[in-house]
Design a protein around this nucleic acid. Structure first.
Length: 512
DNA sequence: TTCCGACAGTGGGGTCGCAAT
DNA sequence: ATTGCGACCCCACTATCGGAA
């Protein structure tokens, strides 16, 4: 199949709003693909490279090259060249990658170039990624969409399912069972604004500590342990303590879901930055483990002794977990049900925060493990802080925000009467707010370099954030975590905005 | 008919490690 | 030795479609 066909369909998919039409377009294309094209075409249209990330970004892409007049590239040829690209490493590799990408781009038409660019940078904006590709695949192969979805979750990969489906038909889906050693997409949580709201929504529920670390899925099969992240990357080699802990448990075969984090000498959790840095260290793991030891804390079990527990209610899964994993390695929790449930949840949240944790996750006791879904049966609740800050500048948006001022630079007042930038945010704005701020900030503009519009520091905005973290990038030595706009405060003047000093005083645990 | 779950899009900061400078 | 880049951790929120209620 020609890449051109695929790029054109991607364009059509992007141009239509209806998901049913997107699905139909993808299904038609999958159906037209030859057997050898399919393992490439499907991931491409899901916005993914079969090879994974290839180390191609702005720098490697370099300047645009003139497009070819006529389409000639086949998807298999592109795939072969990208496989070659992925093998390049060592000194001179960046130039070599640039050369290969340039050659490929030079052979591509303008339409193909746009598609390839999106694919290489992970920004295929067609309003249809994994979920729609799964629907399309189901339709193209006359398989039940729900069964395909489930197989993808259990396989942790669309490609493997696509290959099996096309080779052996819908019957192949049964081959995708929960298997120790093969990671599944983890269940995710929604947000709730209070524990009362969460408990009201879920009824009988468990309230668990939300630990601010790295999510892990731990598989043990006899003497073998594999550890995977939320995106299913294998990080076994980086976490020897976790491997040892899994081998120390009284079970031979199991899959556990949990969080890894580091604690200080007093048993309080260390900052996310410290834990993430440790888990990210790959070169001298032994040294990293000495300096920042980590421990796993488990909250769910997906499989024990060959038995698939995914569809059991959480209450039963937890009973199995409690049999397998001793107390200190299990997340602290309480159960909230009936009258007084909300009050108990509230008490537990306060206690959890006092222990230095992030918040709580409220989980329905009757819910199955919805692998790969952000199911409504897990609700996280974290305290939210707010500040009044001053807009120092704004950046022009991309995609659907093109032509609108989007990303705000936020400043707090300093002792000398100026402002210190604390970070940026593009979150929380409605379309109406985007239009309003574009006009309003336009009137305050004092400079525009085509990317950043600098403004007179006069507009006050209320910002919500999850906490403070250390920063080497910003002048106050701190930055806001997950800042988002709540509303504009036109009733406030810049001299009413919050100061760096009050911000630091509100977060004594964080020092610049 | 209205409501709500699921998705895609729009990007944020930090850290590590490699390659380039 | 330092700097820049890319991958991957953490993530919030809004708009929209389409099925559920």
């Amino acid at each position: 199949m020609l890449l051109h066909r695929l790029a054109e369909v991607s364009g059509e998919v992007a141009a239509t709003a209806a998901r049913s039409r997107k699905t139909a377009l993808l299904a038609e294309l999958f159906g037209d693909a030859e057997a050898d094209d399919v393992p490439i075409v499907i991931p491409y249209l899901a916005g993914r490279l079969p090879q994974g990330r290839l180390g191609v970004g702005r720098r490697v892409l370099g300047r645009p090259v003139p497009p070819a007049a006529e389409p000639s590239l086949t998807v298999r040829e592109v795939d072969a060249r990208l496989t070659e690209l992925g093998k390049v490493s060592g000194p001179g590799s960046q130039a070599e990658r640039s050369r290969i990408v340039g050659e490929l781009m030079g052979a591509a038409t303008a339409t193909e170039q746009r598609f390839l660019l999106g694919l290489l940078t992970g920004e295929v904006r067609q309003g249809a990624l994994d979920a729609v590709a799964v629907e399309g695949l189901a339709r193209a192969t006359s398989a039940d969409p729900a069964a395909v979805r489930r197989a993808v979750m259990l396989a942790g990969s669309l490609q493997a399912v696509a290959r099996a489906l096309l080779a052996d038909g819908p019957g192949a889906l049964e081959g995708f069972r929960l298997t120790v050693g093969r990671p599944v997409l983890p269940m995710l949580a929604h947000s709730a604004s209070s524990v009362a709201e969460a408990v009201e929504k879920l009824g009988s529920c468990a309230v668990e500590e939300k630990l601010d670390g790295i999510r892990v899925q731990v598989h043990r099969d006899g003497d073998t342990v594999r550890i995977h992240t939320r995106t299913l990357d294998d990080i076994t080699d980086r976490l020897p303590e976790v491997g040892a802990a899994a081998l120390g448990l009284a079970g031979e075969r199991f899959i556990l879901d949990g969080e890894v984090l580091s604690f200080d000498a007093g048993g309080r959790p260390r900052s996310f930055q410290e834990t993430a840095g440790r888990v990210g260290s790959r070169v001298d793991v032994a040294r990293a483990a000495r300096e920042v030891p980590v421990a796993p804390v488990f909250f769910d079990v997906l499989s024990v002794d060959g038995q698939d527990l995914l569809d059991l209610p959480f209450a039963e899964r937890h009973a199995r977990l409690a049999r397998l994993v001793p107390e200190p390695m299990r997340v602290r929790r309480t159960v909230a049900s009936g009258t007084g449930g909300a009050a108990e949840a509230e008490r537990f949240l306060a206690e959890t925060l006092a222990r230095g944790h992030e918040g709580v996750v409220v989980k329905a006791l009757d819910a199955p493990y919805s692998a790969g879904r952000r199911g409504a049966s897990w609700l996280k609740v974290k305290p939210v802080h707010t500040l009044d800050l001053v807009v120092l500048a704004a950046e022009w948006g991309h995609g659907r925000r093109a032509g609108l001022l989007s990303n705000l630079h936020l400043g707090a007042r300093t002792a000398d009467g100026g402002f210190a930038m604390l970070g940026k945010t593009f979150k929380g704005m409605t379309d109406a707010m985007l239009a309003w701020q574009t006009e309003r900030l336009g009137r305050l503009a004092v400079g525009d370099d085509g990317h950043v519009v600098t403004v007179r520091p006069e507009l006050v905005v209320e910002i919500a954030y999850d906490g403070l973290q250390r920063s080497t990038r910003y002048p106050a030595g701190v930055t806001l975590r997950f800042a988002r706009v709540v509303r504009y405060r036109e009733d406030k003047r810049p001299e009413d905005a919050d100061t760096v000093a009050t911000l630091l005083a509100a977060h004594p645990e964080v020092r610049p």
